[in-house]
Design a binder for these strands. Structure first.
Lengths: 194, 194
DNA sequence: GTCTATACAGTGATAGAC
DNA sequence: GTCTATCACTGTATAGAC
């Protein structure tokens, strides 16, 4: 973002993605993106004719990158499934900054625009599907694995909300720990009754 | 909001609270509040000199009401603690509309203003404390009850995020069900090892 | 492709009459 | 207490030169 040799388009995208994370799409003006990126007005509207175009490119880049990153971790078949789940849940996360993608679900500019909602939808759909597959690998029936995958993803998102509301990163850890501490006992009980 | 005999101040507050829920504080202009409430410009700035004053009154009313409502349910000592927890978790919720209070944690106008953050903080702090007490009643050690309370509140918030992202109210139910299905087995295991 | 200058509607607030 | 009129400023976008 500070590198003057980066193409204008990349600098604009970097700035937009950072600003969207910090203050949302609704709360970020094209003018701010210009100031942070150090690019002129004309370049912005050359590469991204409307704010919608800029937002779509920035959001898609962020969701794509995030899904790729988590996908590698969850599908690493060298490790047992429960270990992968716990590793995913206990990943270090920027609790106070919030989830770059989760926060978009309460961003009016995003939710009111079908094209902008789509990458957000696809990210969470893909993430839940990945997590569900890992739960199935643990031997859980499909319907139980289904609900538990939603729960796992929700714990992380809810942990972000709590951490920000309470201004305390430990809130996210507590939520995840509370969930993880139930994971193995519940699994034992289910295996025992089968 | 449609009752023309309601005092201006109340009509303004109703309109603001509804609009904040639907589109956030950042995304709601004083002018919109005027249109929806059907009140004149002067009245708004008479009762609420700045947008900050209106937001503070609207947010405080919402958090107060929400905490009162959930408090009654959780402290009803006629019912066993686990039953109260499950009742709280499985409460009918407007999944697609989102949480009136949780959404404020990604609202820039709220998070950038200490006075507006305060009711949001107090709501979640109060809610987690209530839930933790109920977990302690189940016989869980304090530290486990602590983490599990954060998890319970996070599941609901994360369920909202998922439901909105996927445009599917069933996502919130799935997350809650996934959590609830682990609650009793985990409790059994803990009681057994004590 | 990149720049500066400009246009125009909406936002947040004030003034002053009733 | 309530109203209409007005204002400075920002957000979003266009025009046209280099």
């Amino acid at each position: 973002m500070d590198d003057p040799d980066l193409p204008r388009r990349e600098r604009l995208l970097r700035a937009a993605r950072d600003l969207y994370w910090a203050q949302g799409v609704e709360g970020t003006s094209p003018r701010q993106v210009l100031e942070v990126s150090g690019v002129g007005q004309g370049s912005l509207y050359h590469h991204f004719p409307t704010k919608h175009d800029l937002s779509l490119a920035a959001i898609s880049a962020t969701t794509q990158e995030a899904l790729d990153s988590v996908s590698g971790e969850l599908t690493d078949t060298d490790r047992p499934p429960v270990e992968r789940l716990v590793a995913y849940l206990e990943r270090p996360r920027p609790a106070l900054a919030g989830c770059k993608i989760g926060r978009l679900t309460s961003d009016r500019s995003v939710m009111a625009d079908d094209e902008l909602r789509s990458p957000v939808h696809d990210y969470f759909a893909g993430l839940v599907a990945l997590v569900q597959e890992v739960f199935e690998e643990t031997g859980l029936p499909d319907d139980v694995a289904h609900d538990r995958a939603y729960a796992a993803v929700a714990i992380v998102q809810g942990g972000y909300v709590l951490a920000r509301a309470l201004d305390d990163p430990a809130a996210l850890r507590a939520a995840v720990d509370g969930f993880v501490s139930m994971l193995e006992p519940a699994l034992q009980a289910e295996v025992a009754t089968r």
